[in-house]
Nucleic acid binder design. Sequence first.
DNA 1: CGTTATTTTAAACGCGCGTTTAAACTGTGT
DNA 2: ACACAGTTTAAACGCGCGTTTAAAATAACG
Lengths: 209, 209
Amino acid sequence: MSTKDKILDAAEIFFADKGFNGTSLREITSQAEVNLAAVNYHFGSKKELIKAVMSRYMNELAPKLECSLQTLCDSSDDISLEEVFTAFVQPLLWLNEFKENGTSTFLQLLGRGYTDSQGFLRWFLTTQYPNVISNFVSAVKKAYPELSAEEMFWRLHFTMGTVVFTMSSSDALIDIATNDFDEKIDISAVIQKVIPYVSAGVGAPVVNR
Amino acid sequence: MSTKDKILDAAEIFFADKGFNGTSLREITSQAEVNLAAVNYHFGSKKELIKAVMSRYMNELAPKLECSLQTLCDSSDDISLEEVFTAFVQPLLWLNEFKENGTSTFLQLLGRGYTDSQGFLRWFLTTQYPNVISNFVSAVKKAYPELSAEEMFWRLHFTMGTVVFTMSSSDALIDIATNDFDEKIDISAVIQKVIPYVSAGVGAPVVNR
DNA sequence: CGTTATTTTAAACGCGCGTTTAAACTGTGT
DNA sequence: ACACAGTTTAAACGCGCGTTTAAAATAACG
């Protein structure tokens, strides 16, 4: 396995667990059993390493996600919000085939990226993968046409918050839930639980003002 | 104004804006125009300063919040989830009387505390202010008795995520929204927008499994 | 006033960080 | 065997961090 891949594999674990700012290159390189300077040799800087970690997942996910949303939009003239959010499930769970614990790791990374480092990841996603976002907005618009652009903006951010926050601490939450309620919970179960929540949230009646 | 208060006032602004880890004591003390060593003299450590900043708000908020939820629970046998979440509005907005931009600052601090520093704030809130949480859970249970304890656990965490994530980046979001849609948006307007969302989310029908 | 106690101050400490350097090592083609 | 590009290595650099120190300034009080 190449040094580059060893670094990426070690980095994503630490980044997901402790955030980008909270992880040092020394932690990463000693876990990966490579020299400290290898990061700057192969990636140029820590910031570029972060981008590379995110890109590896996004390049897997983005086409599948675009396709899934597109297929849903083309399938019928009458789609529900539940269907829109359910369209995320299969592409996300496929990340578990791509890498062990891929789904959970990616969602945690997403959460870290949004709260660490002053919204740099928001820029990264919107500029590097705009099709995912536009396909998603189209699907929501088709499922709930009465929603104004402004309400849509806010509710999608609320949804982002729900998902990203939940996932960035999903390990801790799953621990608590598994102890307190004797039901087997994994990342897939959490996704199944969050879909009715965000569907109802986005689909909430528009208030008169 | 005492040195302690000058430090607290400067610290909360930076903490809310850039997170706890992202703010240095040198930034705080030079903004507050006090000596660097004053933080450790008056508070003991940076961690204790963080607690002091949070406590100043929580000590204002907690009794009002408990009272508001209690009053709602006692008012009727049939309360709605919208009413439960609306019970937060007045106490939260009162923080604007307590300090300029108090509401916004506090909610951003809450968001920072949940994502920075490995859930230390979760411990802080649950151990220092347990009554707020238990009153809230009681109110939700009364408004939606069919919700199992486990679903309640998850949906309350989803709600926490929605609120905390939104608020921790509310300044940026309000900027975007104000530019893109010509409607006057402030923290109070964001709170009004989030209530239907979280009410519908928590109130989503329970799925059979 | 004089003597404590409290607060403020400038300077330094030790540490871990991301990054850079230059030498050593590795493999490949001729 | 040689030269050379690519890679790995140990060591160091400069910086900013939270914290500590000890002296100076200020306040409190009999």
